[in-house]
Design a protein around this nucleic acid. Structure first.
Lengths: 342, 342
DNA sequence: CTGAAAGCGCTTACAG
DNA sequence: CTGAAAGCGCTTACAG
């Protein structure tokens, strides 16, 4: 019988057991690396597995053991570099734990999200990491509770009853305002975009709170389009009516990037004519010229931590809900200048 | 019995069948949307599913049906925005077909890749989309053949025996050279980075071939570090010795972004002092100033097509190997100027 | 450590 | 359309 033939009919654990002259139960113990099996026996079984080209059938194991070694990750989109960083961090933690990630995209819409969550349940994931789509209500908490499915919220939260891993957006924005004020700026605008959710609100709240604390007039939040080229085109929106900001804090680096381009197009020099602060501190911040000062939220770390929270929750479903809030850090580069020198 | 209690012990298809007063086989047909079931019966079963909170157990189905409705996607890294676009395209196609994606990261290393592929086999994926790690040899073809596992290569290829979806890197580079030559440039450098693989070689080959065709001295390919900030620091490498390029073609947009920053730092004006062309045309190209002329490879489309190839291959394993090469397009923006006017 | 048996929740023929 | 039976490839007690 050639190797080829052996591959034809799937080789099962029973085949391995026979080949190694042990019982099926013993072979099963070897696969699962149980210490109950003696070294000599273990080696014989492992040799048999290699010789027969055995592939462990996780699907069969899961049916019996009620554990799939699979987790679901649901995010509002895949293309944002911020989410890419987040996924990368998760992948590292999840992989290290011997699990595998099924990823799904909601397009930031609750109806899609409902479908996607259902599909993940059908696939028998051991747990889910969810960045809730904008518009998700806290009713989801009781739903999840009914499902008995371990779930952690990431980046955004809609309920206190479930675990959450995110960053301290409020403090991050406060730090940005403080820094600009220390440079002498008083007319500071906030440039935002995208759907409204907890992370959005916390950023706005941090900005407005800090402005008020310094006795500065809180400018209305200025909304920009989603795409970076459109943001550039509409940069003028910052200067309409009686507004004349000397500094702008952005919702994220993407907005900052768009505005930087818009300023360039208008002959405004960042630093000299206007100061600019981004948020998230993704890779581009370092590549922009002048380099972008940005509030770092460390998405990779958040991803790792979200995975860790989920693994804990899977191991101990009764744990009280936990939240892990990553401190932010203002990464000062070259996009802000003291007001006096401008 | 409250809803809660019903959730406690998992409800199975047999429970649904009893509740709807039909046989288990009929309930199974309803779940799988078979046309054999009459409308009235179907509705009764569906109502029972809702009332009992039934969740289809894909794991059990897979064990019997030998189909997991799961595919594996293995990529060398997750953070590159290019791969994010690719995944996004795949996700759309895979999701539309009712399947789900398990994603895995090789870190561009063959040993990791071997582990990851094995893990995906154990999870019983119906097929795999693989961007082969740098250093993967064509021995993988016979290995995969032995596994009887549908697999398509994406972006890079190591064998002709397996399906492949990618872009026409050679033609893309040729077009870039032609364009620069048409603007009067003759001293054109190629700036590369990252590991060497088919996509790398094809880009270099396209560049060198076109240069030779125009009777231009083929400059050696100049290698840069991986990170964008390091690329900026080493931009001088373009001008060492007797080299004085008037234009630079980059391996990808990331290199272009780094060099653009490096030029800025040295007071070189893109367009006036030097022309620059990127490759891939990801979102940043539009946000750079001056806007980056770049060869578009449409990663999102490649992702969709790779998924389509895999679905075909799963349906018809005996199909001869196919390759789908996306034509590229030079997206002209503002980073190149005629030599005479400089 | 072993062996025989039951069962995880489905799907698959097969006879009606 | 239905019903009874077998089986997918494992894991789980349980008695030895």
């Amino acid at each position: 019988m050639s190797r080829q033939d052996q591959k034809q009919k799937k080789v099962t654990l029973l085949d391995v057991a026979k080949h190694a002259d042990v019982s099926r139960a013993t072979a099963s113990l070897v696969v699962r690396k149980s210490p109950l099996v003696g070294a000599e026996t273990r080696q014989r079984v492992e040799a048999a597995m290699r010789e027969l080209g055995y592939v462990y059938n996780m699907g069969a194991a899961r049916l019996r053991a009620e554990r799939s070694h699979t987790i679901g990750v649901v995010v509002p989109n895949l293309t944002n570099p911020f989410f890419a960083e987040l996924l990368s961090g998760m992948e590292a933690s999840v992989d290290a734990a011997g699990l595998v990630m099924i990823i799904a995209n909601t397009g930031d819409g609750p109806p899609r999200q409902a479908i996607v969550l259902q599909r993940l349940r059908e696939h028998g994931v051991d747990g889910i990491i969810l960045c809730p789509a904008a518009g998700t209500t806290d009713e989801i908490a009781s739903q999840i509770e009914g499902w008995k499915l371990p779930l952690v919220q990431v980046l955004r939260h809609v309920t206190d009853e479930l675990d959450y891993a995110g960053a301290d957006y409020v403090a991050g924005m406060e730090e940005a305002v403080e820094y600009l004020v220390s440079l002498g700026h008083r007319a500071i605008s906030f440039a935002a975009h995208g759907p409204v959710h907890s992370a959005y609100q916390e950023r706005v709240q941090g900005f407005l709170g800090a402005m008020k604390r310094f006795g500065l007039r809180p400018e209305p939040v200025i909304r920009f389009p989603d795409r970076v080229d459109q943001i550039a085109q509409e940069a003028d929106a910052l200067f309409v009516k009686d507004r004349a900001p000397t500094a702008v804090i952005c919702f994220n680096d993407l907005v900052a990037h768009g505005l930087a381009a818009g300023f360039y197009d208008r002959g405004l020099k960042i630093g000299r004519d206007i100061s600019l602060i981004g948020f998230d501190d993704v890779a581009d911040a370092e590549a922009m010229r002048p380099r972008l000062t940005s509030v770092s939220t460390a998405p990779n770390e958040i991803g790792q931590k979200a995975a860790a929270l989920l693994l804990d929750r899977i191991a101990q479903p009764a744990l009280p809900p936990r939240r892990w809030i990553n401190p932010t850090r203002l990464h000062i580069r070259d996009s802000c200048r003291p007001l006096s020198s401008s």
